[in-house]
Design a binder for these strands. Structure first.
Lengths: 103, 103
DNA sequence: GCTAACCGTAAGTGATGGCTTACGATAACG
DNA sequence: CGTTATCGTAAGCCATCACTTACGGTTAGC
């Protein structure tokens, strides 16, 4: 899969909109696509990318398919940013700040 | 500018490596490019993208130019994810979890 | 079983991204 | 000043992305 990281998956505005919709609860592909300006197959492809990035989870629902947010993927993203931030502060507190002027 | 959001800026592995290097403190373009498998102009373009995304800050340093992490941009990213996560939990706690089975 | 609903995938297309080399601008240095 | 170091930008190229339409597969309903 070309989407080797969660940031790439989050980079697309349509995919972020899909995630926003899933915040309210599980949705079928048709439901998700209904509110979007792109075709249903396009949404399927986006969901595939989000799934590869571990950001959503899917499950059969009769003839349909139910998608929902996947906590571990989201937590991993938050953890990466949190760690990054903590390390930046710890190693070089003044340089990471925006008000600093010396090196 | 094509980089309308910070996620797009973070999506590229080379750019993430650049940020990792800047975690240790300010660096010139040449210093950053020295440890990377791409050319110096490529690094300049990446820095331009990171700057547009508000993730780095630059400052003249004689003939060189000093780049450093920019706190507000990083915080904004963290805030987006934190808010997203909080809302997902608040609105539909069980659906966001990975162990849930009902809707 | 036939039909309809729902969905994933394949194929093709236009746009964008990341890279390179070449060039020009600016600042220190003698 | 002329030279060197450092950097940003322009132009071009190739890969990838996001999208469309077309198609096939699976499930429910009659």
């Amino acid at each position: 899969m070309a989407y080797d990281n969660a940031f790439a998956a989050m980079a697309d505005p349509t995919r972020r909109t899909v995630l926003e919709r899933l915040k309210a609860g599980p949705r079928t592909v048709g439901d998700i696509a209904a509110g979007l300006p792109v075709s249903r197959p396009a949404v399927s492809q986006h969901l595939k990318a989000l799934k590869a990035a571990d950001l959503v989870r899917d499950e059969p629902r009769g003839a349909a398919r139910l998608y929902r947010l996947h906590a571990p993927g989201l937590q991993a993203l938050r953890a990466y940013l949190d760690d990054f931030w903590d390390e930046a502060l710890a190693r070089f507190k003044d340089h990471a700040e925006s008000e600093d002027e010396r090196d």
